[in-house]
């Protein structure tokens, strides 16, 4: 299989990082696709948890929001939101928190709150939702996000979710005992934090991606590992599973939307 998009490569590379033993707290969007591809390929026994309270969910189509009915109907059990955050997340049962980001820096700090000043923002974003505590209470955090100069910035405008702060032992100094961001999968590369400095470092480039393209899509001086490899391209099976999942999702959401014109007039 030779023909695939950068988006497909990102989702599939992210899916490979998960295992059957993981209990994964799934963020909406790109993380959700990756987690379900993992479940439908190499990790059928992975436990997927969404913050609406659904535990052990196995959706046939990707949810539009973290509270879609599909998640509840296919879950092992559905708990209340306070139980989700207290017993399951704060209680330490989540092995991987999988987050997306609007803006992130080289230490894996995430901003989804504001662009510009908090009190008089240039752009008011939705805010953190579950992410601040997913970032600190999950045993480790994986992140997935498309690279662009707008998203990959020198300094985030707001620390919605703490990654490695200023790097080094900053987490420990704040009393955080979990590992924090350990993996960043983008549409161009796979990054891991340096053991000492905690700065994200490129470990593999997706097929066809050049260092020049990398430079143009990231707002800081990129560090590369001593040995940078090429990401294994998607297999035929991985691509088929992902494309079928996306096709089922599109068909299901169009069906449940009925005709757009009617609902606009009725509201």
């Amino acid at each position: 299989m030779s023909d695939f998009t950068p988006d497909e490569m990102m989702t599939i590379a992210a899916s490979r990082a998960l295992t059957n033993d993981d209990v994964c707290f799934v963020g909406i969007g790109a993380p959700s696709a990756a987690c379900n591809v993992a479940r439908l390929t190499h990790s059928p026994d992975i436990t997927l948890i969404y913050e609406s309270g659904t535990i052990g969910t196995a959706p046939d189509v990707l949810p539009l929001s973290i509270g879609d009915g599909e998640l509840c109907e296919t879950a092992l059990t559905t708990v209340s939101v306070p139980e989700m955050f207290r017993y399951w997340l704060q209680g330490g049962r989540i092995t991987i928190g999988f987050l997306g980001a609007a803006q992130l820096d080289r230490f894996g700090n995430i901003n989804t709150t504001v662009i510009g000043d908090y009190a008089s923002p240039k752009t008011r974003l939705p805010g953190g939702g579950g992410a601040p505590e997913i970032a600190s209470s999950s045993q480790q955090v994986y992140m997935t996000c498309k690279q662009s100069r707008r998203a990959f910035v020198q300094t985030v405008d707001f620390y919605t979710s703490f990654g490695h702060g200023d790097g080094g032992d900053h987490r420990q100094r704040l009393g955080i005992t979990t590992k924090g961001p350990t993996l960043l999968i983008t549409d161009m590369a796979v990054w891991q934090p340096d053991e000492e400095t905690k700065e994200f470092t490129v470990h593999s480039l997706h097929p066809g991606v050049t260092r020049e393209q990398m430079r143009d899509s990231v707002g800081w001086d990129i560090r590369y590992a001593d040995e940078v490899v090429e990401t294994e391209p998607p297999s035929a099976e991985e691509l088929t599973v992902l494309r079928e999942l996306k096709a089922r999702t599109k068909a299901a959401h169009e069906r449940s939307s009925r005709s757009g014109s009617r609902s606009q007039s009725d509201g």
Partner: peptide, 13 residues
């Protein structure tokens, strides 16, 4: 009370 807001910017604002 809960274990939260560790390193988070909301604490400042």
């Amino acid at each position: 009370m809960f274990r939260g807001y560790l390193g988070a910017g909301l604490k400042e604002v």
